[in-house]
Every structure is written in structure tokens, then in C-alpha cells.
Design a binder for these strands. Structure first.
Lengths: 226, 226
DNA sequence: AAATATTTTTAGATCAGCCCAAAATTTTAA
DNA sequence: TTAAAATTTTGGGCTGATCTAAAAATATTT
């Protein structure tokens, strides 16, 4: 069984390779896990010996099939616990990350599948991120950044790029919650800020920074491998 | 913040001193935690420096107020998670110990109080053990071992002394669940086995060993400190 | 009370996971 | 293409938690 630290490395490597589309560098991992490059090299050797990653000195690191399975499970656990914390324990969506970070390391045969069933097999977490199913399949959605929407187009708020409590709390203040339908009214060339109309008839002005951290969905998603 | 290992030591010391009514010996702790006396001595020094225990070389160890508060919280967390696993995730009562053992180490401000509220502030866990409230108060019950009941007396099955999966599964097979009302019909002097009648009219024969591991309650409990 | 047995502590090692500083390698720029 | 810059690895060392073996203290027996 893997240690929590090893699991965190796998998650980090998964996240980085997924986002960058290329092997994760030692520095990138160190930055993500708030540790030093030297510690990372140490751990990469260990993970490599357990065949959880493909690692070549100086060449960066990629997930192995085995590592990918584990990382996917970790994401699944993390996001299901987040749903539990928000839906059942009534935490706010900006409060759950650290708790889920701990809960995702709980090991047990049927625990997560039972939790999944108890929650009604949710496909997205409170931030709109997809939850892999028990077989590791992801629901992919066609979502784009609000900053890429054209004036006149409609969309449904479906997720956030930035997960920081500050941003999430700001959205709360704006009353801009997930699943709100919006229409982009206007984009101001001066600062790229946008004016939107929500389904309850309010008009809001959003800075370019906010628009670049909000996803909107145009059509419903389909199931596919990985 | 304490490490999981430190927390486990506190729980163990609490359990032993509570049961024995005197300072816990190094060996007793080592036995409980499946480790060596040398490791225990090491840890006792560390816990003592953090003023979590009162420790004097060769004299055994007792809980400090600080340690007692933490140990009580751990018991609270463990038992609330057990309730969650059984009531919400539909685990059997003999399957939840190891998971709760992990979950009790999750740290977070309002997590446990929210869980408590979500579960409806249960006062007992699935094995009938009392759950300390947020202030560390225990509900004490007047319960005695079934082996101490006299023929003709009634009682309600309220807890188990032995928590092993084997015993719990055997009770399941007998259909002897918590809150069953029973009447002791007869005790056979030959082997101290007993014959009982359950509230649904069944007659069961229980060995002395079973009777010595089952608690029955005669009247309802009262709240008191510690 | 001395001898023996048991319990507990100390001393010395190990291991995982982490760090820093220095050396090695790769990448970038001149 | 060679020097400078950036990245990565190595070597040595630290901490928390563990162990074994041996020494010290306490408890028990005769």
C-alpha cells in the first residue's frame, strides 16, 4: 500500500502531465508540492522502482498504467468526498479542499463505491470538475472559458479554472453559482471585461480575470475513455 | 498538530488507564499497539514533553488534562464515523472498525460537529458504545453483563464487551441485535450457559462465553462528567 | 536479605521522507 | 560552438518512528 506522500506525488505528476501534455519536470513537481527538487528526485526513484511512473534521469516523468489507475482513483475519492462535504455536511464550496485532501487517502475496499452510491453517483464535484466512475472513466464536457464566449452567446456556468477560496467566495458574493445560465451581452475592448445577464435577470460586470477563470458549457457531455 | 502515531498512543493509554484504573505500563501499551517496549519508552518521552501525559520513569503513565481532551475527541470521532459507515453507507457492524480507525485521524475545524449533526447527534455507536458530545461528556448507562443477570430478569441488549468480527458475526447469525429485549429463563450450573427468550418470542441458548461478552441494560442512562 | 525474574530504559541502527549545498547535465544565448 | 544559465542529481545530514541487544531498575521468590 502506498504512503500518503507517494499518493500525493502521483496526483501531482498526473495533474502536471495532464495539463502540460508532456513529461513533468522535477521542478514543476517540486513547485506543485511545495518541496525541493532534491526531495522530488528521491521520490521519483522510489516510484519508478514500484513501476508507478516512467522515469528517465533529466528527462522528466510520465505516469505508467499502474500509476494512472491509482491517480484516477485518488481524484475520484477527492471529488466524491467534496460532494459529501458540501451536499451532506453543508460546507461551503471554498472550505472543502483541505478536508478532501485528507479524506482521499483513506483506504478501504468498498468505502468509495458505497459513498458514491450514497451520494447518488454524482458525475461532477461542487466545483464542476468531473468525477471518474469506478472503472476510471471520465465524463468530458464541452466547456469553454467565459472569456472565449462571443457577445450574444448563451452558456451555463459549469466550472472554475481557479479553485482558490478567494475566487470562490467572490463568485458567491456575485451570486454566480454553478448551473446559472448566462448570456454574454458585451465585451469592452478597453480591458476585456464583460457584461453578462443571468437567468434571474440580473446584469453583472466581470473583469477579464474573472471571465478567464470561469467555464461555461454550451452542450451536454458524452462519456469516453480517459 | 499531533501525528497519527501520537494520537494512537494517547488513545491506547486512555483505554488502558480507564480499564485498569491505574497508570498504564510500558508493556501494556506495547502489547496494545503491537510494538516493542523500547519504542513505547521513546514515544512516552515525546508525549511527556508535550505535556500530554504524566510520565515518571519506571512508574507508568497517566493522561494529563490536555491528553484526556484529545483522547476523548478521538473516541468521539471514531464512534461518529462508525455510525456514519453503518447508518449511511450500510456497512455491517463488524466491518467498520478499521475504516473508523483511519477516519478518526482526519483533522478539521467543524468537520466532526457537522458530522454529528448530520447523523442526528447519536449518543451510541453501532456497538452500543457511548459517543462523547462536543464538550467531552459521556452518556453513562447502567449496563451489566448478561452473565450477571438472574433467571427471570429482563434486559435490553445494549452493547458488546468483545468487538471482534467473529463475535459480532455470530450474534448476527443468532439474530441477536442491539436493542433486543430479552428475558433470562435459566442458567445451567453445569457450564454456566443460559437460555433466553427474545421479544419476538424465540428461545436461544447462549454459552457462558457469549453471555460474558454481551451487555444488557436495565434502566435508562443519565448524563455525567467523565 | 540475597538471588532471581521481570520490566523498563538506554544505546546504537535502520528506514522513509525531507532538506541544503555542491556537482553534473542539459538548455539557451552569444 | 562555446560560454553562461537553468535544471537536475548526488552526497551528506536531519527528524520521527521503529527495531534489537544490552544495561539498569524494580518486583518476586526463597
Amino acid at each position: 500500500m502506498l504512503s500518503q506522500v507517494e499518493e500525493n506525488y502521483l496526483k501531482s505528476i498526473f495533474k502536471i502531465t495532464e495539463k502540460e501534455g508532456k513529461p513533468a519536470s522535477t521542478n514543476a513537481i517540486a513547485g506543485d508540492l511545495q518541496t525541493t527538487a532534491a526531495s522530488v528526485t528521491d521520490m521519483l526513484k522510489r516510484l519508478s522502482e514500484k513501476t508507478l511512473i516512467h522515469y528517465e534521469k533529466y528527462k522528466g516523468v510520465q505516469m505508467s498504467d499502474k500509476g494512472l489507475t491509482i491517480a484516477t482513483q485518488l481524484v475520484r475519492r477527492h471529488r466524491l468526498w467534496e460532494v459529501f462535504l458540501v451536499e451532506k455536511l453543508e460546507f461551503a464550496w471554498d472550505e472543502v479542499h483541505d478536508l478532501a485532501e485528507q479524506l482521499e487517502h483513506i483506504h478501504g475496499n468498498s468505502l468509495i463505491d458505497r459513498l458514491d452510491a450514497f451520494l447518488g453517483n454524482p458525475r461532477f464535484d461542487p466545483h464542476g470538475d468531473p468525477i471518474p466512475d469506478a472503472q476510471g472513466r471520465w465524463t468530458r464536457r464541452k466547456q469553454i472559458l467565459l472569456s472565449a464566449l462571443e457577445p450574444g452567446e448563451k452558456g451555463i456556468v459549469s466550472g472554475v479554472e481557479n479553485h482558490s477560496p478567494e475566487f470562490l467566495q467572490y463568485l458567491d458574493q456575485l451570486g454566480l453559482v454553478l448551473h446559472t445560465q448566462i448570456t454574454l451581452r458585451e465585451r469592452f475592448p478597453y480591458d476585456q471585461s464583460v457584461r453578462i445577464r443571468t437567468d434571474d435577470g440580473r446584469e453583472l460586470s466581470l473583469s477579464e480575470k474573472v471571465a478567464a477563470n470561469l467555464y461555461v458549457e454550451e452542450q451536454s457531455g458524452t462519456k469516453e475513455r480517459r
